[in-house]
């Protein structure tokens, strides 16, 4: 693996491990496709958590052993999975009734851009091929708490936490918390509140790499993760 790729993997693990701390025992949680799915690998043994997959599985278990693979059993990322001991199946309409009806405690999703008012863009880039929003637009309005995990800046080094999103939105004013490789930021009625700074970064570095104004929390945690 090249150093860049390795760094990327380390960074993703750091974000996923910090995001895991958002999950409390007893929670029903939907994890988005990609980096959010990785969060499941770091759930602490003491926590009893039910993971929901919007294709109709409440209670995702670990990946199957080769001998256990069932082609009829996948997660929303279309990966083969198992069901947990509490697992139950339902139709797509019922699955989204659970989501839309605010029965999930938490959703952890990926993001391309988040704005100071909690707007989220994570489904399309104009001019690029549009693949579709999948369940993201429903989920952002459903779970009681929406946490976005993403890199703090784009691969070109430009901020992804903006005054206003430039990309077409997934949802308006839907984000509660942003977790990046550099910081944990809450979306409040007064704007963005910097709660934690990651190891290896200073408050100033976080502020400089964030386009939207950041208020620094009185109880700011430095080297928080």
């Amino acid at each position: 693996m090249s150093t860049v790729k390795q760094d990327k993997a380390v960074q993703r693990e750091k974000i996923a491990r910090r995001a895991e701390r958002e999950i409390e025992s007893g929670f029903y949680v939907n994890l988005g496709i990609g980096m959010p799915t990785m969060v499941a690998n770091y759930i602490q043994p003491g926590k009893e958590v039910v993971l929901q997959s919007e294709n109709g599985l409440l209670g995702i278990g670990p990946s199957p052993y080769e001998s256990e693979v069932d082609p009829d059993l996948i997660n929303a990322g279309k990966e083969t999975v198992t069901a947990s001991v509490s697992g139950s199946y339902c139709s797509s309409a019922e699955s989204f009734a659970m989501i839309r009806g605010e029965h999930l405690d938490l959703a952890i999703l990926g993001g391309m851009e988040v704005a100071a008012n909690g707007d989220l863009a994570n489904w399309m880039i104009p001019g690029k091929v549009i693949k579709g929003m999948g369940g993201a637009m429903d989920i952002v309005h459903g779970a009681k708490k929406i946490v976005i995990i993403m890199d703090h800046v784009s691969k070109h080094g430009t901020p992804k936490i903006l005054k206003e999103c430039t990309l077409p939105l997934t949802g308006k004013g839907v984000v509660d918390r942003i977790i990046t490789d550099r910081a944990v930021i809450d979306v409040t009625d007064a704007g963005l509140l910097l709660r934690e700074v990651a190891e290896g970064f200073t408050v100033q570095e976080v502020i400089d790499s964030t386009e939207a104004p950041l208020e620094v929390s009185g109880s700011l945690k430095e080297a928080g993760y």
Partner: peptide, 22 residues
């Protein structure tokens, strides 16, 4: 086919799609 204008696409949020069908 989409880029060539041969295919029309209507993208619908997955939960809305399920509920529209329901």
């Amino acid at each position: 086919q989409v880029l060539a204008g041969e295919l029309e696409v209507e993208l619908t949020p997955q939960g809305s799609l399920a509920e529209k069908i329901r």
